[in-house]
């Protein structure tokens, strides 16, 4: 290796390092504030790590706040949304990838259209629609709304994964004696696991961190999800940063676990999808 390429590699690594630091710094700050005792929060100035660590915020959040309820609600909403969306998007993505049918073009155009304007515009009509159905202030209502919003993108994502699987595999299965659905379940679906993982992860994160609709459709703590819950740490006269950050750190845990679990498929999945374009 000559000196130029060594230098180039070093520069490359440095650039990546800078980016990673930049991206991770807010998370680090979250962690730092969450373990800083209240009395040191404003008295120590800007420090990278407090002189004394404490887990009092975590204890408080878990024992004395409504956080466990928010956490449970978020798990239910994000989990259900992810599963439902992935299931439906697999079927619709497969249909878009494999079948030609009347109105396909318009269907795709319509789905694209739903992605083109800011969701804020839809808050009022959606509230109007859900209210008489008794779906405001309910987790089911949130799942319905999130599912509807995530399906178009998830469908396109799944479609690109199905496009990447050669038709001949299904044809071979059909000739081997499988019905179309058997070929889908036994041949295509196992090969789309990376795509399913990527879709699950994408939808789960989107639903987990959604604030706008959760805020508008939910009132009171019993059905609040975690992003709405975080706002309860903001009171009229103060913001309880320590507890808020502790709650934030705890909220990261399931997302991290989830991604750790699907990571093996995800890396494969994202690259496969990328190559396919």
């Amino acid at each position: 290796m000559n000196s130029y390429s060594t230098f180039g590699t070093a520069l490359h690594r440095l650039a990546i390092l800078c980016y990673v630091l930049f991206a991770l710094f807010p998370l680090f700050w979250l962690l730092k504030v969450s373990v800083t005792p209240n009395d040191l929060l404003y008295s120590e100035g800007v420090r990278m790590w407090p002189s004394r660590m404490s887990f009092e915020h975590f204890r408080f959040v878990l024992a004395h706040s409504a956080f466990p309820v928010f956490f449970r609600n978020s798990m239910i909403v994000a989990g259900a949304t992810a599963v439902i969306v992935t299931l439906l998007a697999s079927l619709s993505g497969y249909a878009l990838s494999r079948f030609t049918f009347r109105g396909k073009y318009w269907l795709v155009a319509l789905m694209l259209l739903t992605q083109m304007f800011p969701l804020v515009m839809l808050v009022a009509p959606i509230f109007k629609m859900l209210s008489p159905l008794g779906l405001t202030n309910s987790l089911t209502g949130l799942v319905v709304v999130y599912t509807a919003f995530n399906i178009p993108f998830a469908t396109f994502l799944m479609q690109s994964f199905f496009d990447g699987i050669p038709r001949e595999l299904e044809e071979a299965a059909k000739i081997d004696g499988a019905t179309r659905f058997m070929a889908f379940r036994q041949i295509v679906l196992p090969l789309t696991l990376p795509g399913i993982a990527a879709t699950l992860g994408f939808v789960f994160t989107a639903a987990w961190s959604e604030l706008l609709f959760a805020l508008m459709l939910i009132s009171g703590n019993s059905a609040a999800t975690f992003p709405v819950g975080l706002l309860t740490f903001v009171s009229k006269f103060s913001v309880d940063f320590g507890q808020m950050m502790a709650a934030g750190v705890l909220a990261l845990v399931p997302a991290c676990l989830f991604f750790l679990f699907i990571q093996r498929y995800l890396v494969q999945g994202l690259t496969a999808g990328a190559v396919k374009g």
Binding site: P166, E168, E171, A173, A178
Partner: peptide, 20 residues
Amino acid sequence: RAPKDRDIAMVFQSYALYPH
């Protein structure tokens, strides 16, 4: 008749082996 009911076998150019 569906392919499965024709009792024929096919060898594809791309082999079409099930990767998993």
